[in-house]
Design a protein around this nucleic acid. Structure first.
Length: 428
RNA sequence: UGGGGUGUAGCUCAAUGGCAGAGCGCCCGGCUGUUAACCGGGAAGUUGCAGGUUCGAGUCCUGCCGCCCCAGCCA
């Protein structure tokens, strides 16, 4: 019987299977707290009420022992959660040595990451993974409801979308293959076939980044929409973010409480999000003391300064061409800039989305590829998308872990993914 | 890669240049309602590595290594 349903079975004798998290004994009465992945329950063992054999089992229990607990469900205010099991029988089904590394106390991050496979068993980590799953399902439901088709793009690639650090590997007679940094270029091809698509998959950056906002392997969701311009694009981003936050608030309250997340801050995440032109942002930043000059990309400090006090995510749009990728469409209103946006989460969580309208002019795109020094032949198929029926289209990349970290209120991205991959961490 | 910090028991951390310590966990004992239980006792150390200064180094100096934070790269 799942622990979360015990409240509906008061007075009945049930069996719960799970793992021991806490043991307490007072000589002739003993307490076993166990979790089963959905909840936690305290079981009470009274020496006078059970056989000597059952009583002896308690002495052999250790933290993380797998057990079967059989007893009567009782409502009791003294029990965590309000219900407890008055034990009739206790079986040790999976012994655990006494050296289980993770105690119910503070540990350092490095130690915990070394034991990530066990750390996941803690209530906090389990709560994060449940929110992660909820957000993933929310993303699928959001796009399904809007007739998007999910398209899976290759992880092993030759042509590349961005030039930052690449993981490479030998690939038969074709030379080097690279782990995908984005599925976007393939997404654009699929959008011309299916209209509106999204990708959902892992992506890899070999950057030597050691910050709480970076992982070597992370998950990214990349929608691509035919006949959508930059303004449409931002509206889609806004709807998605609002829906994901609302869904977690609606369905994962207990997890947010476990994480001690301030739900009030999430409740204020409603449309519309402010939209700030890059050029205006620079002026604002200068007036607030930043020494940024037009043409610079926004640094972390600038982002923080800009978003300070905002209760909703903020769009910063239309950056200088030089600061952004080659495929972004030139802004007709100011050709020094491109039609793009970064969505900055509040509370200092930074960029969770980067999006843009794509350059749909064949010749301009070719010029940009040349100007960036990229191998033109590798991009011929991409140019074909402009050669054969070019179309206005836009899309974005949502960083899954950054979104999770923000919604859960995590200090570091490494907690937002089950087994984080960083430059100095490949195992477990 | 640059700047700052840090490394002592299984874990979390103390120790003015002068006897290597505590809490938790573990082992033994006690306790009939505990809530990271409590009480008494016990075991547990190459102070990251290599050199140097000193009568004496966990502590000071040099080099190396690991980790953390910040910046850059970006999602």
């Amino acid at each position: 019987m799942p622990i979360r349903r015990l409240g509906q079975h008061v007075g009945e004798v049930v069996t719960v299977r799970g793992w021991v998290t806490h043991l307490r004994s007072s000589g002739k009465v003993a307490f076993v707290v166990a979790r089963d992945g959905h909840g936690s329950v305290q079981a009470v063992l009274v020496k006078a009420d059970v056989t000597p054999e059952t009583w002896d089992v308690f002495a052999r229990l250790t933290q993380e022992s797998a057990v079967a607990l059989t007893g009567t469900v009782r409502a009791d205010a003294r029990a965590p959660g309000g219900f407890e099991l008055q034990l009739r029988d206790l079986t040790l089904t999976g012994p655990s040595p006494v050296d289980y590394p993770i105690q119910p106390k503070e540990h350092g991050v490095d130690f915990l990451l070394d034991h990530r496979h066990l750390w996941l068993r803690s209530a906090r980590q389990a709560a994060i993974l449940r929110v992660r799953s909820e957000i993933e399902q929310g993303i699928h439901d959001f796009f399904y409801a809007r007739d998007f088709v999910r398209v899976d793009t290759p992880i092993l690639t030759a042509a590349i979308g961005e030039r930052s650090g690449l993981f490479s590997t030998a690939y038969f007679d074709e030379g080097e293959a690279y782990l995908a940094q984005t599925g976007q270029l393939y997404g654009e091809a699929a959008a011309a076939a299916l209209g509106r698509i999204y990708t959902f998959g892992p992506t890899f950056r070999a950057e030597k980044s050691k910050t709480r906002r970076h992982l070597a392997e992370f998950w990214m969701i990349e929608p691509e929409v035919a006949f959508a311009d930059s303004a449409d694009n931002m509206r889609l981003q806004e709807s998605l973010v609002v829906e994901l936050v609302a869904r977690v608030l609606d369905r994962r309250r207990p997890e947010l409480e476990e994480l001690e997340r301030d739900a009030g801050a999430l409740e204020r995440v409603v449309a519309p999000f402010p939209r700030i032109e890059y050029t205006d942002a620079v002026r604002t930043l200068q007036s607030r003391g930043s020494n940024i000059t037009w043409g610079d990309d926004l640094g972390a400090e600038d982002e923080a300064l800009l978003v300070a006090g905002a209760e909703r995510p903020v769009f910063v749009c239309n950056y200088p061409k030089e600061a952004k990728a080659f495929y972004m469409k030139e802004n007709p209103a100011d050709p020094r800039t491109v039609l793009c946006d970064d969505c900055l989460a509040p509370e200092g969580y930074g960029e969770i989305i980067g999006g843009s309208q794509r350059e749909d002019d064949h010749d301009k795109l070719e010029q940009r590829i040349r100007a960036e020094g990229l191998p033109l032949d590798a991009y011929q198929w991409y140019l074909d998308l402009r050669r054969y029926g070019t179309f206005v289209h836009s899309g974005f990349g949502l960083g899954l872990e950054r979104t999770i970290a923000w919604i859960c209120g995590l200090q570091h991205l490494r907690e937002a993914i089950p087994f984080p991959r960083m430059m100095n961490r490949l195992r477990p």
